[in-house]
Design a binder for these strands. Structure first.
Length: 852
RNA sequence: GGGCGUAUAGCUCAGUUGGGAGAGCGCCAGCUCGACAAGCUGGAGGUCACUGGUUCGAGCCCAGUUACGCCCACCA
């Protein structure tokens, strides 16, 4: 090591992530390690497509967790020598961008419609160029080893081609169609949204009971509704066909109050005779159920609420009111007329827009839909056959359940930022033209009066193509040939349907192959108090702040350690554990690198503790590797922690320090070897600190990022050495505990003798005993050790300790005797278990006898 | 309405096929031991939500109860 480097290492008694991370990341980028050439086959290669974050997004804990998981597996496979691509990109996030920009516009006092489509789009692109890539920069802070030279965006020109081709294909197959249908209208974004973007919330409304007079006779039908304003669009009243109370009224008419419309009284099974009066007002234009009933009975569909969430010209005196205003006004008018029979508080589930947070207005609208049943079939089969493995298992069932009941997907959105639907309408012959590229003339009539569809596609329509569209599809590109299908996908469960399921369907339909082999559904990190982490609640924790405070490795370790199959609260302690581990590694590295003799790293098993360390190391490598491959990140990183702290540092380094300081070559070689393997093993989860320590290692011949990942060497597994050292460790612990209990000064070296075989050399040193028998009478026994009287020992304390131990042993003996006296246990338990119990009893008895 | 999940130490969480309850943090006590005070050593702390059952033996299996969380769903 150069003198300057040596001095740097000597002086840095703490690991400083801030100083290291930016520099190390630049080195990786300069090395070009994250940018693979498109060679090899998907089977040989390893590839992952990042779940594309929204361009509106900033890195949040979900990204940080997901990124830590992906990077761990990506780095591990890259180190294994596989040609590895982690494809990076962002999603155009139609609605989210609209929300951001329209807020800006509102502040300027204009709407997007004032601005016009073209200028709005210019503005959106400018916004995207300025802010859209901030999250990419933030991923670098995390250490994500994405291919930053292959960044994709879901509105790239090549991506647009892919979307058009897919749309046309699905249209030609008859899956995509245009229809007037009941949709979820989001007054907030002024667009339709899909079922999956609707969330139901419990709301307490009033349940109004309204009298509808029956025509021609002196009776009323009392209907119950939480939405009296929609009565203006009623076109029938329905009762259950089996309901005898109303059997004579079916076929008659009643008069719609305030409006005067004649409403047929119809019978339909949907009506629950138990609910309210058993009579249901039917509003096909503004209620999903009523829409279905209306279509069954051929009822007129009237709309009184417009896309702006206000009542329209059909609403008469209520025109122009908001829905809430109209509700109050209609109720007031009914009260005046004496038709409002009752009003009760009523709690029920109400749909809200997941995007804008506003209450969904169900209304009938002309939209583009895609039927999914045929696409779902093969996507169900590949999951049933585990060609696509969804883990943990429960999510496989959730996926299948949803897919088996899949419904048409409303794919059009009344927005501008997005993929404009590739449909043109001919103004001359009214033909609908669906083509991949803008036509100049109508293919039917040669007319040129072509008008493109105004709507754009649901953002998730393009996201569904992500794994292959990013690799150049529909062209047969080298990237596609080398990296598709991808290896795995990690995701939070909230986009299992929105995104994952659709990628499987589209992947199979358009490439004939599954898009990925494994889907790992990870847990959600909640806020410290157990609430959801969310910007709007103010409960979010900023990963960048955590990285600033404790380092990227610490955050990565912490998140992986926290993650599990169930949701978990954010734990500062786990992140701290990560920074502790980074610091521990750094200092263990310093100890080894500054003191080892100049030798080639090699697993020299010169002494039994060396055999022990190598055995433990190789077993740890085997176990951690297995866990990483099984997506069990939490146990993998905690096992690394346990090995580094519990075995390497607490014991091995302490045991071999004298040999190391003497410059012994065997231990130097072994330590350098072990350090190299530990650094490589930990690099996928803690890339920065490991790379930094590696830069001081004498065997370094390049970056750790592309160093070989260790393969467990089973020939080093050594049960004999493990047993012997474990015994020495256990004895050391007992001696230390005994010293502490009887209050021996920490520095005092106690005289003692050993019965039987001498324990390992380190026991005396690390427990500060002198087993040389120089001293007077034995005063206490600790296992095989007879402690001799000395000035440092307090006779009374020793006596108390002995009494306590006798008591403990007595209890243990009783427990064991009781168990062995149980005939059932002796007869039915496996013999080995019974034998173990007998062995324990013997040992306890022996120790008690020894104590006298 | 249907489905899924979770209740274990003060806190956050582990606990493989049923065989003496674990980790990290926190707490208490003691340590400037030639890497690390972001350190080292030792310790205290648990009726495994509740009730029943199966078993020689249950945190783990079965039935039920309670509480909390999530997903799906067209009862006004």
């Amino acid at each position: 090591m150069h003198a300057a480097k040596r001095q740097q290492l000597e002086q840095s008694t703490r690991y400083e992530p801030r100083e290291v991370e930016a520099r190390v990341f630049d080195e990786w980028m300069e090395g070009g390690y994250f940018h693979p050439e498109p060679t090899g086959t998907p089977g040989e290669n390893f590839s992952v497509s990042i779940p594309p974050p929204n361009v509106t997004g900033a890195l949040h804990m979900g990204h940080a967790l997901n990124g830590s998981m992906q990077d761990a597996l990506v780095r591990m496979n890259r180190m294994r020598g596989r040609n590895t691509l982690w494809l990076l990109g962002t999603d155009h996030a139609s609605i989210a961008v609209h929300a951001v920009l329209e807020r800006e516009l509102r502040a300027e006092g204009v709407s997007r419609h004032d601005l016009g489509r073209e200028r709005f789009m210019e503005r959106a692109w400018a916004w995207k160029e300025e802010y859209g890539s901030q999250i990419v920069e933030q991923l670098k802070r995390l250490g994500a080893s994405c291919d930053y030279e292959r960044e994709r965006f879901t509105l790239d020109p090549s991506y647009v081609r892919a979307v058009h081709k897919v749309f046309k294909h699905l249209y030609d197959k008859g899956y995509i169609y245009r229809d007037n249908y009941m949709v979820n209208w989001d007054p907030g974004s002024r667009s339709v949204i899909s079922d999956l973007e609707v969330e139901n919330r419990e709301v307490t409304d009033s349940l109004f009971s309204i009298d509808y007079p029956v025509e021609g006779i002196d009776r009323v039908l009392t209907v119950a509704t939480v939405r009296p304003e929609t009565m203006l669009a009623d076109t029938a009243v329905a009762v259950n066909p089996a309901d005898e109370r109303y059997a004579d009224l079916v076929g008659k008419f009643c008069t719609l109050p305030l409006v005067g419309r004649r409403l047929p009284i119809i019978a339909d099974d949907h009506v629950d005779p138990e609910f309210g009066t058993g009579a249901l007002k039917i509003t096909p234009g503004h209620d999903v159920n009523d829409f279905e009933i209306g279509r069954r009975h051929g009822l007129e569909e009237i709309s009184v609420i417009g896309p702006d969430g206000r009542l329209n010209e059909q609403a008469g005196e209520f025109e122009g009111m908001s829905v809430a205003e109209a509700r109050r006004a209609v109720a007031a008018r009914l009260r005046e007329e004496g038709l409002l029979r009752d009003e009760q508080p009523y709690t029920h589930a109400v749909p809200f827009s997941h995007r804008s947070g506003e209450r969904i207005e169900p209304l009938i609208s002309l939209q583009w839909f895609c039927r999914m049943d045929e696409l779902a079939k093969p996507a169900i089969e590949v999951v049933e056959r585990d060609e696509v493995r969804i883990e943990p298992e429960q999510w496989k069932r959730v996926y299948l359940e949803w897919m088996r009941n899949i419904r048409p997907w409303c794919v059009s959105r009344q927005l501008w930022w997005g993929h404009r639907i590739p449909v043109w309408y001919c103004g001359d012959c009214e033909e609908t033209i669906v083509v991949e590229e803008e036509p100049e003339r109508c293919p039917a009539c040669e007319g040129t009066a072509l008008r493109q569809e105004e709507d754009v596609l649901d953002t998730w329509f393009s996201s569904a193509l992500w794994p292959f569209a990013t690799l150049g599809w529909p062209d047969e590109t080298p990237d596609l040939r080398a990296f598709y299908p991808t290896s795995f996908l990690t995701t939070a469960r909230d986009i299992l349907f929105l995104w994952v399921a659709r990628m499987v369907m589209m992947g199979i339909e358009f490439t004939g192959e599954i898009p990925f082999q494994d889907v790992y559904v990870h847990s959600v990190i909640q806020a410290r108090d157990g609430r959801r982490m969310s910007k709007s609640l103010g409960t979010g924790i900023d990963p960048l702040e955590e990285i600033d405070a404790r380092g990227a490795d610490a955050l990565r370790f912490g998140l992986l350690a926290m993650s599990s199959t169930q949701d978990v609260r954010y734990s500062d302690a786990k992140v701290e554990q990560g920074s502790d581990l980074a610091n521990k590694l750094w200092n263990a590295g310093r100890l080894i690198l500054l003191n080892a003799a100049e030798v080639e790293p090699a697993p020299r098993a010169a002494r039994i503790e060396d055999r022990w360390l190598l055995s433990r190391l190789e077993k740890t490598i085997a176990s951690v590797t297995e866990k990483l491959e099984a997506f069990d990140f939490a146990h993998a990183v905690q096992e690394c922690y346990g090995f580094v702290y519990g075995e390497l540092c607490d014991w091995y380094l302490e045991i071999v320090k004298p040999r190391l300081y003497e410059g012994e070559e065997d231990v130097s070689a072994t330590l350098l070897y072990a350090l190299e393997r530990v650094l490589a093993l930990l690099h996928p989860t803690m890339p920065f600190v490991t790379e930094e320590i590696w830069s001081f290692h004498p065997a370094r011949d390049g970056h750790l990022a592309v160093h070989a990942f260790p393969v467990a060497d089973e020939a080093r597994f050594d049960e004999e050495a493990e047993a012997e050292i474990a015994e020495g460790i256990a004895l050391t612990r007992r001696l230390r505990a005994w010293r502490d209990l009887v209050g021996v000064p920490a520095k005092a070296v106690l005289p003692a003798v050993i019965d039987g075989m001498a324990p390992a050399e380190f026991v005396a040193r690390l427990s500060r005993f002198a087993f040389d028998g120089v001293g007077s009478e034995p005063v206490a026994s600790v296992g095989p050790v007879r402690v001799l009287a000395s000035a440092e020992l307090d006779a009374e304390a020793v006596g108390e300790r002995l009494a306590k131990r006798r008591e403990e042993l007595g209890a243990e003996i009783q427990r064991a005797e009781r168990k062995l006296a149980n005939e059932g246990f002796v007869a039915k338990a496996p013999p080995i278990v019974v034998e173990e119990e007998r062995g324990k009893l013997e040992r306890y008895r022996a120790e008690l006898a020894e104590l006298g």
